[in-house]
Write a protein that binds this DNA or RNA. Structure first.
Lengths: 197, 197
DNA sequence: TCCATACTTGGACAGTTGTAAAAATACAAA
DNA sequence: TTTGTATTTTTACAACTGTCCAAGTATGGA
């Protein structure tokens, strides 16, 4: 990332970055990510190419910015400080809300970008990282052998997996039902042994 | 994919494809994936560019071929037919062996490609799909509400998550210990509620 | 051996990428 | 208003990408 999105930028810079982000979101609803060129983004945002490279390293860097803004706009607060700990369920609910808020955007993205595309992967990875940062100090591994980082990683990917299923796979369910999935997947019991037939 | 790797190719074609795969593996051990150009691969494999595009759509298509060959070479057999069902544990053991066999290759790849790079993601996605195909008919969801596809997806990502931790994150443990992780992560209990302090 | 067919190769092409260095512009302090 | 600084834009560049076509080369059957 060229510019840290956490530090407040001047109005002009903010506007320019927004213009590129909007161009990206619009483009994603129109065509697959790998058909989107930096040239086309500049065309749409009405800024010269050099300005694009002024703010972003490349298309992916702009994507990072886009996902970050998504979280910022929906007042996502998954920071995990000493004072402000979030449980896994609380984090889940927050991200659920984010996906809920942006479901039409997500839907239009999915139209042009298959679930196993590099774009969806990039998106998923971003929010997995966000969730990981949020819950990493909340996992309790006193009773088990698995390292806590691995458990935290597992919880993050599970949360994303469920939301991917619901919002990207288009199997809409209520938050309560989604929470049931989460409990079942994380607290078992899933049977590892299956009788051969 | 331009050529289906499942159907047996003529000797010459096989040799050419292998040459490109080898060039890719060698390059991955030398530099980050996004610094590897098709030109350089052709240089290394000593074939003209047109030949590359004869067999592969692009760099990523070659990667698919590489991962497939990895599975083929280690006699990975995770096909899941009616007659030949594999349990989750059996599948886990097979993929564990594959990672074990190629640990030096994986290590050299990790040197140049961070865990969150598009390369490692591509790799992970490939084997997640392989595992999913292997176990999708083995999951037992009679006692729970979560849809079986989601459970199967969850099991696949969990298996890969553990192997990623062990072989890409360099936390070497025995198969037995790895299986303990798998049981703990899939059959719980992971505590979702954590007392606030 | 010859021929037809399939595959491989070389060269050319338009479009894209990321970088660099000037030129133009905006901005803030004196 | 002027001046100095920072940012934005223009322009140019070398390299890469993916496609195309025509020429070359194998290969196997008759």
């Amino acid at each position: 990332m060229k510019y840290d999105p956490n530090v407040k930028q001047s109005r002009g810079i903010e506007r320019t970055q927004r213009a590129f982000a909007t161009a990206m979101f619009d483009s994603l609803a129109e065509k697959p990510f790998d058909k989107i060129t930096v040239n086309a983004l500049c065309e749409k945002a009405d800024y010269p190419r050099a300005t694009f490279y002024n703010y972003f390293d490349d298309k992916f860097d702009l994507l990072n910015f886009c996902w970050f803004k998504l979280g910022q706009d929906t007042h996502l607060d998954v920071t995990n400080t000493q004072e402000n700990k979030l449980t896994i369920k609380e984090t889940f609910a927050q991200i659920y809300k984010l996906f809920e808020d942006y479901q039409s955007l997500l839907l239009s993205i999915i139209e042009n970008n298959p679930l196993d595309s590099s774009l969806v992967n990039h998106f998923v990875r971003h929010f997995t990282d966000v969730i990981y940062a949020s819950i990493k100090n909340s996992v309790d591994t006193k009773a088990i052998h698995t390292p806590s980082e691995l458990v935290a990683q597992h919880c993050s990917t599970t949360i994303i997996e469920i939301l991917k299923w619901i919002y990207l796979g288009q199997h809409k369910v209520t938050l309560e039902e989604a929470e049931t999935y989460l409990t079942e997947l994380l607290s078992g019991p899933i049977h590892l042994q299956k009788d051969k037939q």
